[in-house]
Simulated scan of single mutants.
Amino acid sequence: MTGVWVLLGTLVVAVAAGLLLKARNGRVRAAKPAATARPLPAPVAEALDPASAVTLVQISTTFCAPCRHTRVILSALAEKTDGLHHVDLDVTEQPEVAQALSVLRTPTTLALAADGRELLRVGGVPKGPELLAALQPHLTGIDAR
């Protein structure tokens, strides 16, 4: 009988963990003040577009299937939105970049201002309209092309 209770408890914990992870996937989070103060790694700093109000830096790895889906969403969003630029940074060969940015999973999307300040981040595949709504205060005159 004890084995049944252990199995039942394990299933409850697994379902709760799965629901928590699903709820957090793709959620837009505002940057923490400590994240905005730290210097950017060189590959990220070089990827910033000074002509754009916001640069979306997608942190990816080579064999990440959700990263491909994220790339499609962010590229389309950047193409149709003035002041928004998208860069996909593969950190497979440079894990120190992910470590410096406190990235624990791929894909992770960082929205960076032209001066390098982190505005927000998304862990997992972002939802385009939700991300655009969160970025709206940082973009001057959003205009669909």
Rank of each mutant, 00 (worst) to 15 (best):
P66Y: 05
L77C: 05
A53N: 14
V72A: 11
R71G: 11
R68A: 14
E79I: 07
I73M: 09
L77K: 07
R71D: 15
P50K: 10
T55R: 00
L74M: 02
I59Y: 06
V72G: 03
Q58S: 05
S75D: 14
V72R: 13
A65P: 09
L56S: 05
S75N: 14
T61G: 12
V57T: 01
T55K: 01
P50Q: 11
I73N: 01
A78S: 06
F63P: 02
P66L: 08
V72M: 10
V57G: 00
I73S: 01
A53Y: 10
E79C: 06
T62H: 11
H69S: 13
A78F: 00
I59P: 03
A78I: 00
H69W: 08
R71S: 14
S75C: 03
T62Y: 09
A53H: 15
V57W: 06
T55F: 03
S60N: 11
Q58N: 06
A76I: 01
V57N: 06
C67K: 02
Q58C: 02
A76D: 15
A65C: 00
P50A: 09
K80S: 15
S52F: 05
V54M: 01
A78G: 04
C64W: 05
I73P: 04
C64E: 07
L74F: 04
T70K: 06
Q58H: 12
L77Q: 00
L56W: 00
C64P: 04
I59A: 05
T62M: 08
Q58K: 01
T55W: 03
T61I: 11
A65I: 10
A51V: 11
S60I: 08
V54L: 03
R68K: 14
T70S: 12
S60G: 11
F63G: 15
A65L: 10
R68M: 08
P50T: 12
L77D: 02
V57P: 01
T61Q: 15
I59K: 04
L74T: 03
R71L: 10
L77T: 04
C64Q: 04
T62C: 06
L74E: 00
A65Q: 11
A51Y: 09
S60Q: 12
A53K: 11
R71V: 06
F63A: 11
S52Q: 07
T62W: 08
A51I: 07
A53T: 14
L74Y: 01
V72Q: 11
A53S: 15
Q58G: 00
S75Q: 14
H69F: 10
C67M: 00
K80R: 15
V54N: 00
T62N: 09
P50C: 10
P66K: 01
A76H: 14
R71I: 07
A65E: 13
S75I: 04
T70H: 07
E79S: 12
V72D: 10
A78N: 03
A76F: 06
C67A: 01
I73R: 05
E79D: 15
T61R: 13
S52N: 09
K80E: 15
S60Y: 09
A53G: 15
I73Y: 02
R68W: 05
S75H: 10
T62I: 08
E79K: 14
S52P: 03
Q58Y: 03
A51C: 08
T62S: 14
